[in-house]
Amino acid sequence: MKINENTLLEGKQVVLVPYNAEHVPRYHEWMKSPELQQLTASEPLNLEQEYEMQQSWREDDDKCTFIILDKQRWADGNAGEEQCMVGDVNIFLTDPTDPSLAELEVMVAEPSHRGKGIGKEVTRMMMSYGVTKLGVKQFEVKIGLDNQVSIAMFKKLHFQEVSVSKVFKEMTLEIRVDDLVRAKLLHDTAHMKERDYGQTCRNRQELVSK
């Protein structure tokens, strides 16, 4: 999606940046993992296909993708973005007749960064972006039944279970963004800063949010 091609979102633990070609090799290595393939219901791609996928995600009007970076490591300026990557987050506009409906996907690919609240922070950040920039009014997530950690996280964020597919072995949860949900979401992400990606990258060490 073109809308976020020069957008950086700064949170407390993470920085979200557009999915660029430089991120593809690390992403490709992640997706060789049978565990991540299962958790994301993904088929393995070769490197060339991964580059094509990255380009299509950048161009398609119904997909909005950010790469999750470890903020502390990224802000010190000594590591390349690929070395700071810990996962990705996506919004898919699933209904061509209603752009206010969106499917949300969050992947914390690096095991060392799981269990630290990153998934919850990223989810809130992406929901806030979806609501304020894309006009999303209802979010849906589809999670494998074996992924009880993610199911529990989304329920804590007040997503409600709506169905279980025994065939696909996944649960669907959703949340409608009414005035109350919107107000709480914006309150919980009041610390989030939206920055110019290109400008910020040119001087990473000035990234300060305390």
Score class of each variant (00 low, 15 high):
residue 4 N to H: 02
residue 5 E to K: 09
residue 6 N to I: 09
residue 8 L to D: 01
residue 9 L to G: 03
residue 11 G to L: 06
residue 15 V to W: 05
residue 16 L to T: 05
residue 16 L to Y: 06
residue 17 V to G: 01
residue 18 P to T: 06
residue 18 P to G: 04
residue 20 N to H: 10
residue 22 E to W: 00
residue 23 H to I: 03
residue 25 P to K: 12
residue 27 Y to E: 07
residue 27 Y to R: 09
residue 28 H to R: 10
residue 29 E to F: 03
residue 30 W to N: 05
residue 32 K to Y: 05
residue 32 K to W: 10
residue 32 K to R: 14
residue 33 S to W: 10
residue 35 E to M: 08
residue 36 L to I: 14
residue 37 Q to N: 08
residue 37 Q to Y: 04
residue 38 Q to H: 15
residue 38 Q to V: 03
residue 42 S to I: 04
residue 44 P to H: 05
residue 44 P to C: 08
residue 47 L to H: 07
residue 47 L to M: 11
residue 48 E to M: 03
residue 50 E to H: 10
residue 50 E to D: 15
residue 51 Y to F: 13
residue 52 E to S: 14
residue 54 Q to I: 02
residue 55 Q to A: 14
residue 56 S to K: 11
residue 56 S to I: 04
residue 59 E to W: 02
residue 59 E to S: 12
residue 62 D to E: 07
residue 64 C to L: 11
residue 64 C to E: 13
residue 65 T to F: 15
residue 66 F to E: 04
residue 69 L to H: 04
residue 69 L to G: 10
residue 71 K to N: 01
residue 71 K to W: 05
residue 74 W to P: 00
residue 74 W to E: 03
residue 75 A to F: 08
residue 77 G to V: 10
residue 77 G to K: 09
residue 81 E to D: 12
residue 83 Q to M: 05
residue 84 C to D: 06
residue 84 C to L: 01
residue 84 C to W: 00
residue 86 V to R: 01
residue 86 V to G: 11
residue 87 G to Q: 03
residue 88 D to M: 02
residue 89 V to I: 15
residue 89 V to M: 13
residue 89 V to D: 03
residue 90 N to P: 00
residue 90 N to G: 04
residue 91 I to Q: 04
residue 95 D to T: 10
residue 98 D to L: 08
residue 104 L to G: 13
residue 104 L to T: 12
residue 105 E to W: 00
residue 106 V to K: 05
residue 110 E to P: 02
residue 111 P to L: 04
residue 111 P to F: 10
residue 112 S to T: 13
residue 112 S to K: 07
residue 115 G to S: 10
residue 117 G to I: 08
residue 117 G to Y: 02
residue 117 G to T: 08
residue 117 G to M: 05
residue 118 I to Q: 00
residue 119 G to E: 01
residue 125 M to E: 09
residue 129 Y to F: 14
residue 133 K to Q: 15
residue 133 K to D: 12
residue 137 K to D: 13
residue 137 K to I: 06
residue 138 Q to I: 04
residue 138 Q to E: 11
residue 141 V to R: 06
residue 146 D to T: 06
residue 148 Q to P: 00
residue 150 S to D: 07
residue 151 I to V: 14
residue 151 I to N: 08
residue 152 A to S: 14
residue 152 A to D: 13
residue 155 K to S: 15
residue 159 F to L: 13
residue 161 E to Q: 14
residue 163 S to C: 07
residue 164 V to Q: 14
residue 165 S to W: 07
residue 166 K to P: 00
residue 168 F to D: 14
residue 169 K to T: 00
residue 171 M to A: 15
residue 173 L to Q: 07
residue 174 E to Y: 03
residue 174 E to K: 11
residue 176 R to A: 12
residue 177 V to F: 07
residue 181 V to F: 14
residue 185 L to Y: 06
residue 186 L to N: 03
residue 187 H to Y: 07
residue 191 H to V: 00
residue 191 H to G: 03
residue 197 Y to H: 09
residue 199 Q to S: 12
residue 202 R to W: 00
residue 204 R to D: 05
residue 204 R to M: 01
residue 205 Q to H: 07
residue 205 Q to T: 14
residue 205 Q to F: 05
residue 208 V to A: 13
residue 208 V to S: 15
residue 209 S to R: 12
